[in-house]
């Protein structure tokens, strides 16, 4: 069965003459345990798809099914236990005046866990940070360490689907390699499903099994990684994107 099924998804912002259709008739399916990539230029609507799934983009139509459950306007609490998101900029996604312990502890508390103390320790170990980072504030961490905290926070409710919005684009190449390895390990350990947005085709090629190419709010092509590696895109736009990224 599929973990995520999206059919005829439209997302728009503004109304009347200011209306912008950010996503039009998007349709794709992500199987359980799969890693699926969304690529495209900025403004192509790839992040908007993720934001629509989490409920951060209120105006949408179409159907979105998570693990067989259709999403409605309001998300039930169980949704947030299944789906979590990691944002692009680790410098902006952590509260500057909350320590790592508070960030993770609050998330765990909100999801109703009781053994918070043990879980915080475990989460920090899982993302390769260790105990000594527990009482630090974001400004005392490097970009890669912050992104690890953001990943730990996303993992706290034990989700099964992780939405990754350009998780490494703000990081150096050497740190990017560490984070990508961490994400690959976590997926293997926990059987997670990834939906990853990136403009970097080589990152998507490394992380994902299949990918969708978006242009101007529409999915122009869905291809698997072997086709990507062989540079065999059938749509002219995806071919253009492939050539530009070499």
């Amino acid at each position: 069965m599929s973990m995520l099924q999206i059919n005829g998804l439209n997302v728009w912002f503004g109304k009347n003459q200011n209306r912008v259709d950010a996503v039009r008739q998007a349709k794709f399916t992500v199987a359980k345990g799969e890693s699926f990539g969304l690529v495209g230029e900025s403004g192509s609507g790839k992040s908007t798809v993720l934001r629509a799934i989490t409920g951060l983009a209120p105006n949408w139509s179409g159907t979105m099914d998570i693990d067989g459950q259709s999403l409605t306007r309001t998300r039930p609490k169980s949704f947030f236990k299944t789906v979590q998101m990691v944002f692009q900029d680790p410098y902006a996604s952590l509260h500057p005046r909350h320590s790592v312990d508070q960030v993770l502890g609050e998330t765990l508390y909100l999801h109703g866990f009781s053994d918070i103390d043990a879980r915080v320790v475990k989460l920090l170990d899982d993302v390769g940070l260790g105990q000594k980072f527990r009482f630090r504030y974001p400004h005392q961490l490097s970009g890669g360490q912050r992104q690890r905290v953001a990943i730990a926070r996303a993992l706290a409710p034990e989700p099964r689907l992780l939405l990754l919005d350009e998780p490494t684009s703000a990081l150096d190449v050497s740190v990017q390699a560490e984070i990508l390895n961490l994400l690959a390990d976590l997926r293997a350990d926990r059987g997670l499903t990834y939906l990853m947005v990136s403009h970097d085709l080589s990152v998507v090629g490394h992380m994902c099994d299949r990918l969708a190419v978006m242009n101007n709010g529409e999915i122009v092509e869905i291809l698997d990684v072997d086709a990507l590696r062989a540079m065999k895109a059938s749509h002219p736009y995806s071919q253009h994107l492939l050539e530009a990224s070499l």
């Binding site: 390699a177 390895n181 090629g205 490394h206």
Partner: peptide, 20 residues
């Protein structure tokens, strides 16, 4: 060399990336 090897490449798929 470390920086170069830590880049994912489309033409050379690898399971893990080299970490500096």
């Amino acid at each position: 060399r470390g920086l170069l090897n830590s880049l994912p490449r489309l033409d050379q798929p690898r399971d893990r990336l080299d970490v500096l």
